[in-house]
Amino acid sequence: MTNQPLLEVRDLQTVFELDEGTVKAVDGVSFDVYSGKVLGIVGESGCGKSVTIKSVLRLIEEPGRIANGAIRFRSKILGNSSNDMIDLVQLPAKGAQLRALRGNEIALIPQEPMAAFSPVHTIGNQLIEVIQLHQPVSDEEAKKIAVTRLKEVGFPNPESAMDRYSWELSGGLRQRAMIGMALTCDPLLLIADEPTTAIDVTTQAQVLSLLRKLQQEHQTSIIFITHDLGVIAQLADDVVVMYLGKVMESGPVDQIFHNPQHPYTRALLRSIPTVHTKNRSRLPTISGSIPHPFQKRTGCPFVARCQEALPQQRCTNQTPVLKAINKHQSVSCFLHEEEVNAC
């Protein structure tokens, strides 16, 4: 069972048809999420991480659409047997089946809890809502479950917090409330979309350790989206590095950090300051900026900024694909062709 993934994303393509042209926000992304494991998706702003997880939740809105690919999820409520995988792409986006999954088996922790809570409904109201959507319980019982959840995520006095509004809480408590709400129905998969960007660093650490603790207690799988490699190192079991809608490299967290194979991953890691960094020295950055999304691209998306690009325009004329270079790690780069062939 542990070797079977809970979620398989295969060759996912999500495009936005705008007046100016088609933007391939997610361009052939594949990854697996295993039960009880944390997958970190890391990348710069605009690399398609958020669109990827919105595609998994099937929350892509017009003018966006999933153009290709499969998102197979091992659902308990939709599958006939425990080994059935349901392709979420095939389900109607606004249909009852997906609604039964969302908030229940797949839950979201959003980026900005301030904006994601309704300002005119109490925390309790919004928690009870999701409980009663997915569980046939009375108001009393739903309230009890909600209070238990708030206690679990570290609310000092959960009963009174039920009657509070989101804007009355501190940033950390707000995000805790969100985590509590996401966990109410014991989801199989938790999707956290940069959940710590909106809070300060101290609180961030608390929220992360809370997430880690709850994840271990409930054996929940998590897809954790961030641009912060430090957070990934703290939390993730596996890592997917994305750039411009494509996966550059994926593998176990140790491999990615200690043995990065893709020039982009290496560049990212170089740009993290460490305690060994000399004072007043310049932090290495990745030169250049992300190409405009409307630009027609051939070749490797990273080529313009790559320091290790191959001679004879190889990287500009041909597009590398993601291939396994050893048992765990996959890289999308021509530098590793020999290893791929040997594999």
Partner: peptide, 29 residues
């Protein structure tokens, strides 16, 4: 366009119910 719409969808609320509960309420204020 507010983020709470997406959150409500991610909770599994049906479109009609969530529109009536959240944005309509706020738009009426």
């Amino acid at each position: 366009k507010k983020p709470y719409m997406e959150m409500a969808r991610a909770k599994g609320l049906s479109e009609w119910r969530l529109v009536m509960k959240y944005p309509v309420r706020l738009a009426l204020n």
